[in-house]
Lab assay of single mutants.
Amino acid sequence: MSGNGNAAATAEENSPKMRVIRVGTRKSQLARIQTDSVVATLKASYPGLQFEIIAMSTTGDKILDTALSKIGEKSLFTKELEHALEKNEVDLVVHSLKDLPTVLPPGFTIGAICKRENPHDAVVFHPKFVGKTLETLPEKSVVGTSSLRRAAQLQRKFPHLEFRSIRGNLNTRLRKLDEQQEFSAIILATAGLQRMGWHNRVGQILHPEECMYAVGQGALGVEVRAKDQDILDLVGVLHDPETLLRCIAERAFLRHLEGGCSVPVAVHTAMKDGQLYLTGGVWSLDGSDSIQETMQATIHVPAQHEDGPEDDPQLVGITARNIPRGPQLAAQNLGISLANLLLSKGAKNILDVARQLNDAH
């Protein structure tokens, strides 16, 4: 009898209710805020589980004197976190989706994509230029951005401005803007500013005609071990179906173009009346040469937790077992079709030249 009692006690200790789920994140304040929001949602869904947040620095956090596009290494903000995932030191990792490459290392998958916040870019102005827009900034004003995508589009749109690289986390960039006289304004992701509670610093939100956004911008991705079915089931509740389908289309477009950090590629997606609209573009580094096109596809946005595919093969690095396969494939095909259209119009040449120029500098 006593033996059975011990077995029952052991089973209770090993039951999922007692389990601590370890969540990996970057150390920056924004990353911690984003991770806290994901953990809060998981806690609400699984009140019996405990969650421990483990923060670590990544290569991208450490190399702050070089433009991201020049470092010449993929997975700048993800490699150390993936290493911890691989060694079973954490069970899942919360990322900004735009930091996750469209091809993940073997053994990993994006197990959830959370509801997207505003994906557009924002302009934050130096205190002396508050009330201005990019259009009304004085001639030769210097605007800071760490992104080739932003610089290429904005140089084309605002030729009277000069664009220079600015690195560091959000706090560091804002301090550089406010305390030094080098920059009249800087460009940042609206979602990051909003998550930090800095709505009052948003001086201008850039519309798609001015600057399309990065693939996955404004959404959070939760990376897990691809074979860890328990954790895949656990994080599945975080999937937002519309965000998922938009981001599958965007990531398929980028992957098929073979774009990345070192080339200016941008997108804009919208879901309306059962249609998914995808606009994508590529630019030369100075913005003088560009190709942009829009395509659409009829896609039914499923309700969360309709029964999805059981075999769960990944699409552009994403596993969404609780979302039907048909809409996911339709979104992926839309991204591939748009990429093929741009490639047929000469996108590869623009991107190759951009890559060579970026590598040469």
Rank of each mutant, 00 (worst) to 15 (best):
G218M: 00
N200T: 13
L49N: 03
R225F: 05
F51T: 13
E179M: 10
V265M: 03
N88F: 12
V123N: 00
T136W: 13
R225A: 03
T35W: 04
V90P: 01
F158V: 05
K98S: 03
V282A: 09
D233Q: 08
L315G: 06
K157I: 10
T243Q: 15
E117H: 11
G203R: 04
R246I: 06
G197M: 02
A226H: 12
G335Q: 06
E310K: 08
R246V: 13
R225E: 07
E223V: 05
L351A: 03
E223T: 06
F163A: 12
V353C: 02
N340A: 04
R225V: 07
P106K: 13
L30N: 00
R246K: 06
D121H: 03
E306T: 03
A214R: 00
L76A: 06
A40S: 10
L76V: 13
D233K: 10
Q204L: 14
V123K: 01
L154H: 09
R175V: 13
L68S: 10
R325C: 07
V215W: 00
I63D: 01
G144K: 08
D311I: 04
G48N: 15
A303N: 15
Q181A: 07
H256G: 15
S141Q: 11
K272Q: 09
L137P: 02
Q155R: 11
Q332N: 08
D289Q: 15
D312C: 14
D240G: 02
Q50I: 07
P313Q: 03
Q292W: 06
Q275I: 06
K227H: 04
Q304P: 06
V20D: 05
P208Y: 14
H120M: 13
D230Q: 15
L341G: 08
I231A: 15
L97V: 12
I21P: 05
F253I: 13
D36P: 00
A122W: 01
E182K: 07
I53R: 08
A354T: 14
T59M: 12
E210C: 15
V237E: 03
V130Y: 14
A152H: 14
L76D: 12
S290K: 07
L329D: 09
R246T: 08
L42M: 09
R22K: 13
V267S: 05
Y277N: 10
G221H: 05
V353Q: 15
N171D: 14
P309S: 10
L276S: 03
E139A: 13
L177G: 01
I63C: 11
I323L: 14
L220Y: 09
G281K: 02
F108V: 09
R167G: 09
E135P: 11
L104V: 09
E117R: 07
T319C: 11
K74A: 10
V235I: 03
K140T: 11
V124H: 00
D65F: 10
P264M: 00
V94R: 00
F77L: 03
Q155C: 13
P208E: 01
E306N: 15
K98E: 00
H207Q: 12
I54Q: 03
V93R: 10
T66S: 14
P324F: 02
L85V: 10
Q217V: 02
P106V: 14
V39S: 07
L81F: 12
L285Y: 15
K128W: 10
K128Q: 06
D65E: 15
I291L: 11
C247T: 06
L154Y: 07
K128S: 08
L245V: 09
E162A: 07
T172A: 13
L188M: 07
D286V: 11
L97H: 01
K176D: 09
